[in-house]
Amino acid sequence: MTNSEETSREADNALQWREGDMPYSSLFGDHFYCQTDGRLECGHVFLAGNGLPERWQREGVFRIGELGFGTALNFCETWRQWQHLAASDSQLHFTSFELYPMQAEEIDRALSHWPELDRERQALVTLWPKTPAGIIDLAITDRVRLTVVCGQALANLVSYTEMFDAWFLDGFAPSRNPDMWSPELMQAVYDHTSDGGTFATYAAAGFVRRNLHAAGFNVERRPGFAGKREMLCGIRPASAA
């Protein structure tokens, strides 16, 4: 891709702000989070769908992987709940794969909608690099670490060495961004999931379910958020002894 093509592509992804502080991607033709309440959707889909915070009651490092960092809403809400509900001797490492990382001021504006996240939002924005690119690795607290891997999710995940206990699959809608739900990427997610590890996603499209099942996950349909009929969650079966 030439420099001019890359510049044009980035311009196409320029944020639009709708209804005040609702971020919208012109490239993918989709909002960054649920218009009803993205924070509550995070709790319903990603936290409850992965059996959290119950699984945080063990010592050691709990590793969450995410496809689509976006506004950092999922991270901030996860961190907020972790502080109150996780075992005191546990640690959280949250790793997200993001093609178009936002600027600090954009994250700040997008999350300002939720006063519940003021503390987390302000801390993240303070630490966020002026030019987000490459691998962003932040020691948020002595117990919480955030890594954002910028660039193409498939290429970066295939070469990644870490395994994850839970996945938040939160790319733009499958109909608008099918590459984020491809068989190859879902296989890479499975390959980077620990035995007994889980995933959850708001998406319920048939091809997404089939791709996750073909990768090796046991897939389950559950009621979606805010009247959405279905969401998907699942588990990587433990390997045979």
Rank of each mutant, 00 (worst) to 15 (best):
Q35H: 07
D37W: 08
R39A: 14
R39E: 12
L40V: 07
L40E: 07
C42I: 09
C42D: 03
G43Q: 03
G43P: 01
F46N: 00
F46W: 01
L47T: 11
A48W: 11
G49E: 02
G51W: 04
L52E: 06
P53E: 08
E54R: 13
W56M: 11
Q57M: 11
R58W: 14
E59A: 15
E59H: 14
E59S: 15
G60N: 13
V61M: 05
V61I: 09
R63K: 13
E66T: 01
G70A: 00
G70D: 00
A72F: 04
A72C: 10
A72I: 02
N74L: 10
F75V: 07
C76G: 00
T78K: 08
T78R: 06
T78M: 09
R80A: 11
Q81C: 15
Q81H: 14
W82Y: 13
H84Q: 15
A86D: 08
A86R: 12
A86C: 12
A87Q: 12
A87H: 13
S88W: 11
D89M: 05
S90P: 15
S90K: 15
L92P: 05
S96L: 02
S96W: 01
F97C: 06
F97K: 09
E98N: 00
L99K: 15
Q103E: 13
E105V: 07
E106N: 07
D108H: 08
R109A: 09
A110M: 09
L111H: 05
S112P: 07
S112F: 07
W114V: 13
P115V: 06
E116N: 14
R119N: 08
R121G: 06
Q122H: 12
Q122F: 06
A123P: 05
A123Q: 13
V125E: 10
V125R: 11
L127Y: 13
L127S: 15
W128Q: 05
P129Y: 05
A133F: 02
G134I: 03
I135K: 10
I136R: 03
I136G: 08
I136Q: 04
I136H: 04
D137G: 02
